[in-house]
Design a protein around this nucleic acid. Structure first.
Lengths: 147, 147
DNA sequence: CCCCTTTCTTGAACCAGTCAAGTTTCTTTG
DNA sequence: CAAAGAAACTTGACTGGTTCAAGAAAGGGG
């Protein structure tokens, strides 16, 4: 996915191609699951004058158009990723909050058959796995430990 | 689950039995999926002097002890419920944000076998269904409609 | 190349949630 | 039953992510 690809995606979504938007897309590609602050910082390394509001607007527009996906695990700020439409899920570390992708074991549309949906019309089943990442699983940190 | 039951639960969790805590438990029982603000309002109908900080503290303590469950769908504030330990999930209305319980169709611990967990030690799989509630599914609102 | 619309900048405001210090109230023990 | 220690609560200020609003800038069709 290079920049011309991003251009096509934007035009396909009836969005103008702007420097801030390309920078945001590049930032999210570089750093999947980045939160808004990280995206802003990353964007400013290449476009120092972009306002924080622009990043919020861009991320909102891209999310609405389905070009990026917004994830928001409980207790975390909003995070963004480029992988869309492939029905994957996320593992979140309870300790450090890091997020990783998980392809669904059940296949496409997992668990989408809820027993009693109370009349809701369901269009998506989102699965979030909670646990500890490899780094936080380590019993005692090597140096800097707590004796 | 009456008040003496709540007392037992609190003592069993090594928590003191206080009026604010009982009031919070009653509020959450009365209004499952209530957010903190609603809980505060409900609590104050019986205990008008309880501070908002107390409600935050109580909900935090009860959550830590596993007496209540905190749920936080993306874009929503924290909500609380008494049903714990029965592995049920939630449907969230994209339009109005209302939450309903859904018993898992797969059985206990649904989808807990992720394909590649990247070394994470997973202890919970949380499933959130997204869609429209019966009220928001109605094509055109009776009165007050869009011409 | 011009104009119109979308997008971006600036700057202020909002609100759920948190922090800190001091007071109250549980519960255990003498 | 009373006292003491610890947990819990009140008060009040504050934070930080997100949103609102008004005006300036810059895409892109014609």
């Amino acid at each position: 996915m290079d920049d011309s690809e991003f251009e096509h995606l934007l035009r396909g979504a009836d969005l103008r191609v702007t420097r801030p938007r390309l920078a945001v897309l590049r930032a999210v590609r570089r750093q999947p699951h980045a939160d808004t602050g990280s995206v802003l910082a990353a964007v400013r390394t290449e476009e120092p004058t972009v306002s924080h509001q622009a990043v919020y607007d861009v991320l909102g527009a891209l999310t609405d158009s389905g070009l990026v996906r917004r994830i928001q695990p409980a207790g975390s700020v909003a995070r963004y990723e480029l992988r869309v439409g492939d029905n994957h899920h996320h593992v979140v570390c309870r300790s450090c909050g890091v997020v990783a992708d998980v392809d669904c074991a059940v296949g496409v549309r997992p668990c989408l058959d809820a027993s009693d949906t109370h009349g809701f019309v369901i269009d998506e089943a989102e699965v979030t796995y909670w646990g500890l990442c490899p780094a936080c699983t380590v019993p005692a940190p090597p140096t800097k430990g707590s004796p």
